[in-house]
Nucleic acid binder design. Structure first.
Length: 441
DNA sequence: CTTCATGATTAGGG
DNA sequence: CCCTAATCATGAAG
């Protein structure tokens, strides 16, 4: 504080001694009759200024105040400001422009995309709870991972926001402080509002460079987190047994058309509690039930590729579903079958005996099921039965014959027969024919 | 360690 | 978007 007068002192000294502009100015104002008086006045002021350093602090304060109130003060101050602006500001004024930092923008975008800086998306514990709820009551092994991820992310987010707020507050505080200081000093020192503005700009730049560091390290943290959790999607977690069971059941009972609809997929995903993918695709929320789709995709291709390998499994599931399906629908078809006797003869028996099974399929095929029964149920049953038959019949032969395609729904060029209706199954040419010959042997 | 099974990803077709 | 086919990468079994 006590160097204030000295500052003033030197400033005035330089101004008076070295600058012609000031002299010019003063001459302009002193053209009149009382010019002598004015000069005397200014001389007085300067004298006071010069001596102010020699005085005690209290005295100096008083003197300063007196000077501040002097009628010539504004004029002198303006002159000083003008000079300063011409000399100092014009030099540094060139570097005013501030390019919108690309790096900063990139960081901002990333933080936004990762949900760190964007609008609050549910918060920490809420997010964890949501993740847990989404996974349902079943095997929550993967949801644990994700809630873990979310928890960590929200932790990062919280730190980021706290720090950001701290910086902002500090920045504001410091800016206010500096502004007050400058304003205070501007009463005794030539400081223009522009200069204050510039100072504020400098402060803000400094602080924003700190902010950038914060953003950068936050980005790094998020990246690390991502690589540890999300990008480990390739990390295979095997579905639990129940899930595979459910999926297999569906697969083998829809063998002729193992393409679950959107709803079916959703249901399966829910039942197996393997549906996680909704949020992993960061932007959109589509591609639901990716897991189920993946599973069916893999299953189809692998089944087709090597049917022999899946025979046992298929047999098992087919038998299982056949058992349950018969329980449900035997009565229904029994009611119907007798009314439509067909060439194959007796129907309705679903014993685990290949001959009988064949018969029942025959009846299903040859008979007019189109009019009578619940489509889905029958369809599934037909699939199942066909499968059982192909197993029982094919065990001795189809394996030995190294068939690439079996009597299922697969046609020669490799696709699943694209008729989803029972007609594909009913077509008596391929499937049942071969099965028949097999079974009769 | 190798091998196999299997979930996920990618390329390419529609 | 859906699909298939090939491939990658990992977890578990031997």
């Amino acid at each position: 504080m006590d160097d204030q007068p000295r500052l003033m002192h030197s400033s005035h000294g330089v101004g008076m001694a070295g600058h012609p502009g000031l002299a010019q100015h003063m001459q302009d104002g002193t053209g009149g009759a009382d010019g002598e008086g004015r000069k005397q006045d200014i001389g007085d002021i300067l004298q006071q200024i010069m001596t102010i350093t020699d005085q005690s602090l209290d005295e100096a304060q008083a003197r300063k105040h007196a000077l501040n109130c002097h009628r010539m003060k504004p004029a002198l101050f303006n002159v000083l400001c003008e000079i300063k602006e011409k000399t100092v500001l014009s030099i540094r004024g060139a570097q005013e422009e501030e390019p919108p930092d690309a790096q900063l923008m990139r960081l901002d975008n990333m933080l936004l995309a990762e949900g760190v800086s964007g609008p609050e998306k549910g918060g920490g514990s809420a997010a964890a709870a949501a993740a847990a709820a989404a996974a349902g009551g079943g095997g929550s092994d993967n949801s644990v991972e994700h809630s873990d991820y979310r928890a960590k992310l929200s932790q990062i987010r919280q730190i980021y926001h706290t720090e950001l707020e701290k910086y902002e507050q500090a920045c504001n505080e410091f800016t206010t402080h500096v502004m007050n200081l400058l304003r205070e000093q501007s009463r005794t020192r030539p400081i223009s509002p522009k200069e204050i503005e510039r100072m504020v700009g400098i402060i803000h730049r400094k602080f924003s460079s700190i902010q950038m560091q914060l953003k950068q390290s936050t980005c790094e943290a998020v990246m690390i987190l991502r690589s540890r959790f999300l990008d480990a999607r390739r990390k295979r977690r095997n579905f639990n047994k129940q899930a595979t069971e459910i999926l297999n059941e569906y697969f083998y009972s829809h063998l002729s058309n193992p393409y679950p609809s959107e709803e079916a997929k959703e249901e399966l995903g829910k039942k197996c509690s393997i549906t996680v993918s909704q949020w992993s695709r960061d932007t959109k929320q589509l591609s639901n039930n990716l897991e189920v789709s993946n599973w069916f995709g893999n299953k189809r291709i692998r089944y087709k590729k090597n049917i022999g390998k899946f025979q046992e499994e298929a047999n098992m599931y087919a038998a299982k579903t056949a058992a349950t399906a018969t329980n449900v629908s035997t009565h229904g078809s029994q009611a119907n079958s007798p009314s439509t006797p067909n060439s194959a003869g007796s129907a309705g028996s679903f014993n685990m005996n290949s001959g009988d099974l064949f018969m029942s399929v025959q009846s299903l095929n040859g008979d007019s099921y189109q009019g009578a029964q619940v489509g889905a149920n029958i369809q599934s049953q037909v699939d199942t039965l066909r499968h059982v038959i192909s197993q029982t019949g094919g065990y001795s032969e189809s394996l030995a014959a190294s068939q690439i395609y079996s009597p299922q729904g697969i046609n020669a060029n490799g696709g699943w027969q694209d008729a989803p209706t029972p007609s594909s199954v009913t077509s008596p040419t391929e499937g049942p024919g071969s099965v028949h010959s097999d079974t009769s042997n």
